[in-house]
Structure formats: structure tokens, C-alpha cells
Write a protein that binds this DNA or RNA. Structure first.
Ligand SMILES: NC(=O)c1ccc[n+]([C@@H]2O[C@H](COP(=O)([O-])OP(=O)(O)OC[C@H]3O[C@@H](n4cnc5c(N)ncnc54)[C@H](O)[C@@H]3O)[C@@H](O)[C@H]2O)c1
Ligand SMILES: NC(=O)c1ccc[n+]([C@@H]2O[C@H](COP(=O)([O-])OP(=O)(O)OC[C@H]3O[C@@H](n4cnc5c(N)ncnc54)[C@H](O)[C@@H]3O)[C@@H](O)[C@H]2O)c1
Lengths: 246, 246
DNA sequence: AGGCGCTTGTGAAGGCGTGCACAAATCGCG
DNA sequence: CGCGATTTGTGCACGCCTTCACAAGCGCCT
């Protein structure tokens, strides 16, 4: 592991500053801060305190300050954080200054919804290509984009500069699609299929499984139900996700 | 919020054993184990070792053993875990022995996909009611279920025994919908709208934000790109989600 | 019956993340 | 110019989670 301290990399190309190695937990919260900041910017706020931003993002203010301190010192004591500056900083760190090209594989039930979603554009992403294996679907337009056959994946990745692939195929096909994405040069995958993907080192996989989310909620339902019969049935919040009193 | 009932409930119904308080991290993995176990059961396996199950679930075997040990001792040394028994145990812990009734609010782009998804049924959930505020959509059937007006929420929750609500409305409407769900008696919410929800203590909220997932991937892309220019640019796996070598 | 190989369950150690509490820094104002 | 109000940045302690390593337990084979 690299023991690099504060990011003064000696012989570095001056254009790109040393990349801070942020805690994974911090990274996962930055998008939330970013969204809150965009909301604030729309209301015309120039600056925001850690307290205010923390509330908007649904986190502890100390946590927020520590998170932001990892990026550098972009706040002013006694004043707060400059909203526009912080937006730029976070977007830079997240690599959103360039709008990233995304490929979506599997244009079925869920894929349709994703392809038709305009919310990605405003958050830094462009879905530039849709793929499916079903000849029935290939060639048809969705939201102004033609569905292409999966065989064209390799070419499209190069031509469109795709770095992220989204898998919305049945679980049985997901590993195969992942392999094809990796072969084509994609190094980040978002997987909606309920299965474990195996990819080479250097490729990042994130998974979204709605049934798992529901099952976690179900567990807490079960727990709450069994607690109502117990003395001092205190309701606890879920820990991971907030449950703020009104 | 500091209201705490003092109640001595001495005689517990012997049917329900004391509820183990599992680490939150363990709970989040149980659904993954469960899915892997169901896959194994389909292949006809009677038992599985911690090593085997861990591989199928994409985790470390030591972690898996510790997770399972929290449920009790359901393995046999020298042999492994009884697949069927473990499935029953995990399903019981997760409260899936009763099929939970789910309400879906917001039958738009994404809501349609969710309503038409048959994968929930096999994982312990029934979507029993669809709601929307748009009169255009109310009354129309989706996947054999009529879309009802949001005003009927309260009655439906009671009649259908709904405990989980899924929000798939625009962000602006989400807090209002959450309030209505809570008022109606729902104590668990899965939120797809990109916003922070505020709910009273005792209500669990989980959030799925696809843009956040993409932005986390984007960060790692950015990091990887900046590392390629560095000496010894070794690719590390994402930490949270697996990136196993083939 | 006894030994041997295999696998579970767990004690212990280390790392990571969180939140408190406070010093340092900045602004506004008299 | 100094002072108080305000807010950031962070040292520190604590708890949770992960991982290693191994003793204890189980079944099979001889
Ligand atoms: N629909 C939902 O709300 C929902 C919810 C949670 C999870 N999921 C998961 O998302 C995935 C997709 O769900 P869905 O409901 O859209 O399924 P779907 O069957 O409607 O769509 C799957 C699509 O993938 C295509 N496909 C199959 N094999 C392919 C291949 N090798 N290459 C390219 N395309 C291929 C099919 O032609 C089809 O169009 C599934 O894994 C499902 O479990 C869906
Ligand atoms: N479509 C996607 O792939 C996708 C991806 C990520 C996130 N999301 C999020 O999911 C949510 C829904 O997305 P969508 O694309 O389905 O939007 P949509 O506009 O297609 O659908 C929203 C639906 O909610 C209904 N609605 C609005 N206010 C309501 C209210 N007060 N009560 C009940 N129903 C109400 C609308 O009538 C509409 O049918 C949004 O918050 C979006 O940001 C969607």
C-alpha cells in the first residue's frame, strides 16, 4: 500500500493535483452532499454552514466537516462553505467535470425505466448506448436512442468513450454480459441482476438489489413486532439510514 | 421523542424465542446468503461448507461463519451447513416466513418496472397495492393490479396489512408521500426519490439512489485514470463491493 | 475403537468510522 | 483596534467490523 501522506507528489504533471485517498465511507457520502448543495444553490444561497449542509444531507455535522476536511480546506471559519466552490470541488473529486458515458445492457422492464430517466443527465452522466440480445428489441428507439445488438458493444465502447456499464439483464445472463463489458474495456459496472459478479482486479462492481433492501426492512419489521411484546419497547433507528424525528 | 413506556411483560409467548440483536452489517448480508442458499438448493446440494457458501455469496468465509454464528449453531463441524435448515433460519430471522405486503406509490417510469417485476414474489414480498396522484393513471391495471388514488392509502394499509411502502414519485412529492405512509401506519419505507426523508422515530427508511451509485463508480474511474500516470499504478478493488479475479 | 482429516465456532488483534469537544481562525461591530 | 460571536478543522476516545489463527468437534476409514 502506498504510505503517501499529504498529497505533495514530487514529479507529477502539474495539471492533475495529487489524488487524495479518501475513506470509502466519505466517498459514498459525497454524492449526497453534492445533491444537497445543488438544491441550496437553486435557492440562491451563497454559503452554507456545516450544520445547515449536514441537515440537508441527513448526516451529523461533525461527520460532514471531517468528510470535507479530507478534500482540503474549502470552508471559512465563522462563515461556512462557499456553495459554488464546494460544488466544483466535489464534482472534480467525483470525476463529474467530464460527463461520463454510460452503456446500458438489457432493455427489458427495468432497462426501459432507466433508459427513459432524465435524472442521470443532471447528475453527470449520459446514457449513450443501449444493448439487448433479443432481436425483437434491437433497432427500436427508446427515448431517442436506438437499441443495438450486444455484439456491437466492443465498438461502441471505443467510439463513445464508455467507461461505465449498467447491467439490467436477468441474473443468468449477467456474468456473461459482465465479461463482455470487461473485454470491451469497461472498468466500472453497476449491476441490477441479483447475483454475484466475478471480474478481474481493477474493475469496480457495484450492485443494486431491491429485494435485499426490502428484506432488510423486513428484518426490522420483524424485530419491531417482536419488541412490542417486550418491556420498554424502544424504537431504534436503522443505523445505516436515517430516521429523523419530525 | 423521549416518551418511553414502562411495561412489565413477564410472560413471553414461548413460541417466539428471544430476538437476537444482530450487527447491522450482518443483517445486510443475510439476504445475500439466502439468495446463494436458494441457488444451492436448486442444484440439489444438501449441505454446504462456509467456504463454498462464502464464495457463492461473494464474501470472506471467516466473515460468513461469524455472521452465521450470531444466529446460533446451525452448522456441523467437519460437514458444513444444512442448506434447507439454514434457509429456514435466515428466512425466519428476516421475517420472511410471512409474505410481507408492500404498497408502491408513484406508478411512473420506474414504478411501472417495479410493479411488473415478478422477482419480489420469490423473495418474500407481495406488492398488494399501487397508488398514484395522477387521475390519468388511477383506475388502470398494471400487471393485474388496479392503480388506486393516493387518498385510499389509509384504508388499504389496514385492509391489506401493509407494513412496507415503496416511494417512486418525483423528489418533490416524496416527503409528502412519506408522511402519508407514516400516518397510514406504515413503519418501513424504501425510497427511490433522490432526497432525504424525515420520519418519526420507529420508522425505518432505506434509500436507493442510482445516481449516487454511478457517482461512486465515477470517483473510482477518476482515481484509476489518475493512477495510470503514476509509477506502480496498481489497481485496487473497491473495498465495499467485490472485484474478484477470475 | 482409535486416529485422521475436515470444518465450524470464536478469541484476539488491528483497522476503520463516528462523534465529542475544543482550539484556531474569521467576521462584524463598537 | 480589540472583542465577542460564530464556525471550521481536528485530536482523541470509543465502538463496530473484519480478519487471522486455532482449538474443539464431527464423521469416516481402517
Ligand atoms: N424490473 C424490476 O423492477 C427489477 C427490480 C429489481 C431487480 N430487477 C433485476 O433487473 C434485471 C432486469 O429485470 P427486468 O424486469 O427488466 O427483466 P426483463 O426480462 O424484462 O428484461 C431483461 C432484458 O435483458 C435482455 N437480455 C437477456 N439476456 C441478454 C444478454 N445476454 N445480453 C443482452 N441483453 C440480454 C432481454 O432480452 C430483456 O430485454 C433482472 O436481473 C431483475 O432481477 C428488476
Ligand atoms: N426512472 C428511473 O430509472 C429512475 C432512476 C433513478 C431514480 N428515479 C427516481 O424515481 C422517482 C420516480 O421516477 P420516474 O422516472 O418513475 O418518474 P415519473 O415522473 O415517471 O413518475 C412519477 C409518478 O409519481 C406520481 N406522483 C407524483 N406525485 C405524487 C404524489 N404526491 N402521490 C402519488 N403519486 C405521485 C406521478 O403521477 C407519476 O406517475 C423519481 O424520484 C426519480 O428521481 C427514477
Amino acid at each position: 500500500m502506498s504510505q503517501q501522506r499529504h498529497g505533495n507528489t514530487p514529479g507529477k504533471t502539474g495539471a492533475v493535483p495529487a489524488f487524495p485517498d479518501l475513506p470509502e465511507a466519505t466517498i459514498a457520502r459525497l454524492p449526497e452532499y453534492l445533491r444537497a448543495l445543488h438544491n441550496l444553490a437553486e435557492t440562491g444561497a451563497d454559503t452554507v454552514s456545516s450544520e445547515g449542509l449536514a441537515a440537508a444531507a441527513g448526516v451529523n455535522s461533525a461527520k460532514l466537516r471531517k468528510d470535507l476536511s479530507h478534500l482540503g480546506s474549502y470552508g471559512t471559519r465563522g462563515v461556512g462553505y462557499d456553495v459554488a466552490l464546494l460544488i466544483d470541488q466535489i464534482e472534480y473529486i467525483l470525476g463529474l467535470d467530464q460527463r461520463r458515458a454510460v452503456a446500458l445492457v438489457g432493455v427489458g422492464n427495468l432497462g426501459h425505466a432507466l433508459a427513459g430517466y432524465d435524472g442521470f443527465a443532471s447528475r453527470g452522466f449520459r446514457i449513450v448506448a443501449l444493448f439487448d440480445a433479443d432481436p425483437e428489441r434491437v433497432g427500436k428507439p427508446i427515448n431517442g436512442l436506438l437499441v443495438r445488438h450486444i455484439d456491437e458493444l466492443g465498438r461502441a465502447v471505443v467510439e463513445e468513450g464508455i467507461t461505465i456499464g449498467v447491467i439490467a439483464t436477468p441474473a443468468g445472463a449477467a456474468q456473461g454480459v459482465a465479461d463482455e463489458l470487461v473485454t470491451a474495456g469497461v472498468t466500472s459496472i453497476l449491476n441490477f441482476a441479483p447475483c454475484v459478479l466475478s471480474v478481474p482486479a481493477g474493475v469496480d462492481v457495484r450492485k443494486v438489489d431491491l429485494a435485499i433492501e426490502l428484506q432488510i426492512l423486513s428484518f426490522h419489521e420483524h424485530r419491531k413486532a417482536s419488541l412490542t411484546a417486550l418491556p420498554g419497547g424502544r424504537a431504534e433507528q436503522a443505523g445505516n439510514q436515517e430516521a429523523v424525528g419530525s
